[in-house]
Amino acid sequence: MMSTLATTTFFSEGLLGSQGALVAAAAIGVAFGFFLEKGGFGSSKKLVAVFYMRDFAVLKVMFGAVVTALIGIRVLAAAGAVDLGNWYQMETFLVPQIGAGLLFGMGFVMGGWCPGTAVVGAVSGRWDAIVFLGGAGIGSLIYAGAYPAIEPLTSEGALGVSTLDGVLGVSPGVAALLVIVVALGAFIGSNRLVAWRARRTA
């Protein structure tokens, strides 16, 4: 019974638009926003500090979240508690996703927010976050209006559902281990860089 419940998702049951899914999404979103604010990510100064190599909290939190989810999913899948076939996996389209990533990064460093943290900042009453969200809304409308003209680009470089283990030709466990090693290297390296900068400015 537990296994059946664990392998059932709103996506696998075709219930993403159901009331239960919306309630779950709202609850997760509120919890996510609460912990973002508690972690200091409701401040654009803290967020952009990573780009100036002054504060690597964003890097650590993001990598920490990736590693935590990765380990949890792999352990549960190996134990038969979840069926990854029931999980939605986004397809890879190299051209639009690389282009969007570059635009996202530019917007992040220039505006000081990403969409999720901007919502947290706006709820906290930060005007720069509110303006940022307004700009994001306008950009979304422009994209929607231009979509018919740029639609062919949205499927360029299609690779289907592409995973790290598939690209590297290794087992999922080995791919997970590689991600963990990279994350640990990033944690250690960022700590040493901050310590080095502190010694230089002391």
Rank of each mutant, 00 (worst) to 15 (best):
R192H: 09
W196G: 03
S155C: 10
L84G: 14
S140W: 15
A175W: 04
D128A: 09
A31I: 12
V66M: 07
V194W: 03
Q89N: 07
A175Y: 06
G42H: 02
A57D: 04
V119A: 09
A149C: 09
G105C: 03
G14E: 03
I188M: 13
L153N: 08
K45M: 15
A122L: 06
G166L: 10
A183D: 04
A77Q: 13
F35Y: 08
I130Y: 02
F56H: 09
I150C: 07
V48W: 01
G157F: 07
V182E: 09
V174K: 07
I71F: 08
L22T: 05
Y143M: 12
G107I: 00
L159Y: 13
V161Q: 12
L141C: 13
Y88M: 07
Q89L: 15
G145N: 10
G160W: 06
W113M: 00
I138N: 05
F108D: 01
G157H: 10
S43A: 11
F35N: 06
V58W: 00
Y143Q: 05
R200L: 15
F187W: 08
S124R: 13
F51V: 03
F187K: 00
R54E: 14
L47Q: 01
V109R: 12
A198F: 05
L84M: 15
R74T: 11
V119P: 04
L47N: 05
G145Y: 10
G116W: 00
L5M: 08
A198M: 10
T9V: 08
L184Y: 05
G173R: 04
V194C: 06
S18A: 01
A176E: 01
M106K: 09
V66P: 01
G139Q: 07
I28F: 14
A202F: 12
W127Q: 12
D55L: 04
A146K: 09
W113S: 03
F10W: 09
V123K: 01
L177E: 05
G29H: 07
P115Q: 05
P148E: 11
L153Y: 08
N86H: 15
Y52S: 14
S162T: 11
E91C: 04
D83S: 14
I73Q: 12
K60F: 07
L184Q: 04
G111F: 02
Y88G: 01
G40K: 00
F187C: 02
W113V: 01
P115H: 03
